[in-house]
Design a protein around this nucleic acid. Structure first.
Lengths: 152, 152
DNA sequence: TCCAAACAGTTGAAAGTTCAACCATGTAGT
DNA sequence: ACTACATGGTTGAACTTTCAACTGTTTGGA
């Protein structure tokens, strides 16, 4: 079957999406790296842990909610543990399992990093768009997530 | 000044955007890696070169249009050169300069990779959204790009 | 002409990600 | 109980990206 190449309008949308992603995550990563000495993925791990009861989560679940592979998470948590921001503990109910727990130091680090990060997200994205556009963005994002999940 | 945290609606949009990005680029990278043995960034380099007169571009310009650092591009082109997909040539008008040129082999590799990639982009994004949503996405992306450029 | 600053590009080390292989534990079926 | 398979998680090697330092070239004045 012949390839259905993108039309001009489709290309415009696709390239705008690609470009906005790159410049945006570049900026966010740089900001976090500069002000909090961590990449965005690590920030997300800390956020998820901080939002959980007991600031503790099973490794697999943490990998699932942060959308990272178990391998990636394992390496990442190893680094976070070196810094004392997270500790690993044996899971009491499943001897295979490990829990990652956010330490008090890790929580403080996150609390210190959050305002700068949120401010950047706001100024680069949230405050740049109208409420209607934010709603559209949510719809579009959710549609893509659902579609990709279905395809693969 | 007190941090202006995200409202529920803002969080929904932001997290949907984050999540769609991750699952989408994960899927795209995996598809390209599997079917064409290259990451998405390399694909973009080949595309840009293929679209240029003479399939040749100055390293700095190529870095600019692919939104990558000169260092990153330098490493990437080194790998592409090892594979014979690109060659570096001295720039005739500026002895500091280097031109990257897409080889015939590189062009063929790109031509072989493109249909599968476009098909994936279509099925995961373009065909999942309405024409209105694509237009919205273009607007949103362009707004973010302009904003980030202004901020930094 | 000479010098300082800017520019073009590369390099090596450190950090993050991916992939496949691996160990240990749990689960289901016979 | 035994076997086979699935699950939870880690590891090391290969690869990509970042960062800072570096070489060589050009440019714009004194």
């Amino acid at each position: 079957m012949a390839t259905r190449w993108l039309t001009a309008a489709e290309q415009r949308a696709w390239r705008a999406y690609l470009e906005s992603n790159k410049v945006l995550f570049d900026a966010l990563d740089r900001q976090l790296q500069r002000e909090a000495d961590m990449p965005h993925t690590y920030y997300e791990i800390l956020v998820r842990l901080s939002e959980t009861e007991g600031r503790t989560m099973r490794m697999s679940e943490l990998a699932a909610v942060t959308l990272s592979s178990r391998s990636r998470l394992s390496h990442a948590v190893a680094r976070l543990e070196e810094r004392g921001w997270v500790v690993r503990e044996d899971c009491p109910t499943d001897r295979r399992g490990q829990n990652a727990r956010l330490t008090d130091i890790g929580f403080d680090v996150l609390a210190a990093a959050a305002p700068g990060h949120v401010e950047t997200v706001r100024s680069h994205v949230i405050d740049a768009l109208t409420p209607e556009q934010l709603e559209q963005l949510a719809e579009i994002g959710e549609t893509i997530v659902a579609r990709v999940a279905k395809e693969s």
